[in-house]
Amino acid sequence: MKRALPFILLLAGTAAMYLLMPYNLAFATRILVMGIFVLSIDLVLGFAGIATLGQAAMYGAGAYAAALFAAHAWAEPVAGLAVGAAAGAVVALLSGLVLMRASGLTLIMLTIAVAALLAETANRARDLTGGADGLRVAFGPVLGLWEFDFIGQTGFCYAAAVGACVLGLLALVARSPFGLSLRGLQSSPARMAAIGAPVYPRRVAAYTLGGAIAGIAGALSAQVAGLVSLETFSFTLSAEALVMLILGGTGRLWGALLGTVLFMFAHHYAAAADPFNWLFAIGALVMVVVFVLPGGLLSLPGALKGGRHD
């Protein structure tokens, strides 16, 4: 029962968003998309300890791949997700072969550089991507059954279903031997090598899997919005997603989701209250959480019980 509790909360939360904000489903859908994206960073950074500020590279690749696939080949969204996942995985694999040799600050700079390179490439390839104007694409009905409607009901349910699949997949991975080995990599690469684990291939594999999931998030964002822009590659996106992860707590799947929800709502209401100074509210929130709960919001129950909880 205790294990099922987070799932029940998540289901209730999703249902509540649907029922309480029927005219703001686009916002609720954005939360779901960001949740998937933050989960991808949690896998790479929270589990495997790979420092990154360029996860948007794979998000953008997934978004553009899904849009181009829909425009030129097949407009069915689920197939587009697969294409987005593949694009994210390929970008992560190819860049990861170089990046995973690096660590620390060098690695962070390189991840930023990869995202910037892709953004500039998409900007230059106007004929294909629409450049700075973005790429507007009409997607077909989901599985040929559900048409995207203008209030976003289909989009929301579709994003919720994809989110549940990704979360389920990552929950499996987290407790698998692979998941355990990622936590080992984060804790001590030297010890991993000393127990005969292939450190570099394992890091590349983790980065690639994280890239595939970021690609899914990107593809989903393109599909529910019907639009892809250069923003999908932006540094801001990577950085904000990282802040969400830190807010919630790294290395735990629920932390990624909790942080996303908190950040998105804080952003939403702070920006509505004061369109010019809303970043101040976000900054204050992050500072309070980081100072009071270094392990993120998910460490709150343990902190209340007294003594840190693992």
Partner: peptide, 23 residues
């Protein structure tokens, strides 16, 4: 226990397994 589990699993070359429980 997890430390030792990691060592045994790596010795058995199971570190890339995704869809079974580590324990």
């Amino acid at each position: 226990r997890e430390n030792l589990r990691l060592a045994v699993l790596e010795r058995e070359r199971r570190g890339f397994r995704l869809f079974c429980r580590a324990d």
